[in-house]
């Protein structure tokens, strides 16, 4: 089996893992077991591509949409249940930056990290993900400006799912080809298909290498579909027509990849069923642990506000 096919099969497992976890999380939210939850459905090919290609020691600055990559970088389902279930211990995983909720603010953190790599003369890079809506905010332009100015090793990855909650791209941005925004900063950029894992993983491998070897920022805009509501508190039917929703569902990257793997005899329906069962068992085990957990403690949590606790 060629290397790339291997990647596709392991990538498929991660995509499926995230999709199944998302189903569980939505159901948990509906049962009041976790709070508001933002899904990744439809965008897994992009996020798994990142997970496959970003180096372990690189710095990843994610936002709330990034569940599949988080799973690949050390988050267990339990951590994500905590993350969306009101427990900060969900942010205690690995060495990456925690997910950013304030839109676009974390793009600057990634640029700061890239600056640190540059002056420490190490080979790591920073990779930051952001939505199309985030490209309206000053932080985005400020980070591009500074990264271009100092030739920072940073990859900007836009998950362009064409909606910021309900606001469509046409109302969001005077330039709807978002990758072109990098032009005025003299930063290389490309617009790519984010629905096909082969495409995302190959392009990410290539551009991650480019950023690393040339120490130059690059911006990639991946076109995706958000097949879920913005979060569990949202109802996409309020702003997406039935036609659009149906068209997007027809392009589900997970289904597309499963078909490819089936065609190449890498995964038959029986194997797929076993895989699903195995992944669901993992999720279920963490779910049981999450539900029965009583170790969260306010005094412990409070001890983390300052490095040195000030007087009472």
């Amino acid at each position: 089996m060629p290397e790339s096919m291997n990647d596709l099969l392991s990538g498929y497992k991660w995509m499926l893992f995230s999709r199944l976890l998302e189903e569980k999380m939505v159901s948990m939210q509906r049962h009041g077991e976790i709070g508001t939850y933002p899904g990744s459905k439809g965008q897994e090919a992009l996020y798994v591509g990142i997970g496959l290609k970003l180096g372990q020691k690189d710095c990843y600055a994610p936002y709330y949409r990034d569940q599949p990559t988080l799973l690949m970088r050390g988050y267990r389902p339990l951590d994500l249940m905590r993350l969306w279930g009101g427990d900060e211990r969900g942010n205690q995983v690995g060495h990456d930056f925690p997910i950013s909720i304030p839109i676009a603010t974390h793009i600057l953190h990634a640029a700061g990290a890239a600056y640190a790599f540059k002056i420490k003369k190490t080979k790591e890079i920073a990779l930051v993900t952001l939505g199309d809506g985030a490209t309206s905010k000053g932080d985005f332009y400020e980070a591009l400006n500074f990264s271009g100015l100092y030739d920072l090793p940073i990859l900007f990855v836009i998950n362009n799912n064409r909606y910021a909650i309900s606001v469509p791209l046409e109302k969001q941005s005077s330039q709807i080809d978002l990758y072109k925004k990098a032009d005025s900063f003299d930063i290389e950029s490309h617009q790519l298909d984010g629905l096909c894992l082969k495409n995302t993983s190959e392009s990410l491998e290539h551009y991650i290498n480019q950023v690393r070897s040339r120490s130059r920022p690059i911006l990639l805009e991946y076109k995706t579909h958000r097949l879920c509501d913005h979060t569990t508190s949202d109802d996409a039917k309020r702003y997406k027509s039935k036609t659009i929703i149906e068209k997007e569902i027809a392009e589900d990257p997970l289904v597309k990849l499963r078909n490819t793997l089936r065609e190449h005899q890498l995964l038959n329906d029986h194997q797929n069923k076993l895989l699903k069962e195995e992944l669901n068992e993992t999720i279920q085990a963490d779910y049981v642990q999450f539900i029965n957990d009583s170790t969260l403690n306010y005094a412990d949590a409070k001890s983390h506000l300052y490095a040195e606790l000030p007087m009472k």
């Binding site: 603010t105 002056i119 500074f146």
Partner: peptide
Amino acid sequence: PLAENMIAGLSIGMAMQGL
């Protein structure tokens, strides 16, 4: 560059990478 939000945001990233 002349951007206060940027100065703060970059400082955060630098600090979280050990500077």
